[in-house]
Structure formats: structure tokens, C-alpha cells
Design a protein around this nucleic acid. Structure first.
Lengths: 67, 67
DNA sequence: AATCTTTATCATTTCAACATTATAAACTCA
DNA sequence: TGAGTTTATAATGTTGAAATGATAAAGATT
């Protein structure tokens, strides 16, 4: 299972989902779903856009949790 | 840009794409495309299956390359 | 209270990811 | 050389990821 740690990351950096939406083009509704964990099978295109805008590495957004 | 380092990983571990296909259920043709870099926007479902089967972390499969 | 911003949610549509199947090509190895 | 395995490639169908737009709800600010 891969956890998307976007909520915490945005909170830490004091960045709103709206700001991410406007800067990256990722739709606001999709972002809301991702942040709330309602969408899990996200594509690398979106992960990439997040890494670019947030200037972070993949492991700051994703975490693999074996089970 | 996110690079998928699957070819090198499979080579290092001497695991065939066919073995991955059979163990994970990821289709053989898709796997071939991913390994050859013909498909880049892969979903986290597939990344997760790879991590599970190969018992590795995400960063062994993916690499974020800023540009 | 009224206004502004942000987030949640829903409905619709588009398009590509992925599965499936089949075949060809490449590569072992007896 | 021929059989067995692995990889490349193409065609097709399904499904869900993601965009768009719109509205409601929740938070902030004054």
C-alpha cells in the first residue's frame, strides 16, 4: 500500500490545495480527493507536478507501507 | 520528470519481466512498455505491486529528476 | 452579518491506463 | 537446428483517472 502524504506536506509548508491547483493545473476536485485519501491510484504525472511545484522528492509525498 | 528504473532493477536482481507479470498480474505487454520507457504515466497501483513483489522501496523504482 | 477564500462534493465527459489476446522477434540451450 | 522461454509489438475493449464546471459547505477576515 502506498500512502500519499500530501495533506501533511501542504500543512507543514502552509501551502493551500488551491495554490497547488492554480500552479500545476491539477484540478481542484481531484486534489481535494487526493488530499483526503479518497483517491489512491494516482498517476506519476500528478506526482511529478507535485514534486516540481513543491520542490520535493518523491518520498516526501509517497510512502510504501508493506503489509 | 520521473524516471522508472525498472530495467536496471530487474537486471540486478536477475528477475524476468515475465516472472513479475505472473506474480503480480501486471500484463506482460504493459510491463514491456514500462521497462522500455514507452510508458511513463504509470499508476501507483502498479508501483505498489512492483514494490510488494520485489520487496523494495519506491525510490528503488522511481527517481524524480528536476529540470 | 457580509464578503472572500478555501475545501468538499457532485455530475458529466474525455482520454489514456491497463487487461486481454495474439503474433512476431529475439534469445537461450539441449 | 529445433524446441522452449522471454521480450517486443499491435489491435481491441473496458474502466477509471483526470478535467471541467457548478454548487454547497466550511473557514477566515473585516
Amino acid at each position: 500500500m502506498i500512502k500519499i502524504k500530501l495533506r501533511q506536506l501542504l500543512w507543514d509548508r502552509e501551502v493551500t490545495a488551491t495554490a497547488v491547483h492554480q500552479a500545476t493545473g491539477i484540478s481542484q476536485s481531484i486534489l481535494s480527493d487526493i488530499v483526503r485519501g479518497k483517491r489512491t491510484n494516482v498517476g506519476l504525472d500528478i506526482i511529478n507536478k507535485l514534486c516540481v511545484y513543491l520542490e520535493c522528492d518523491i518520498n516526501e509525498i509517497l510512502e510504501f507501507i508493506p503489509e
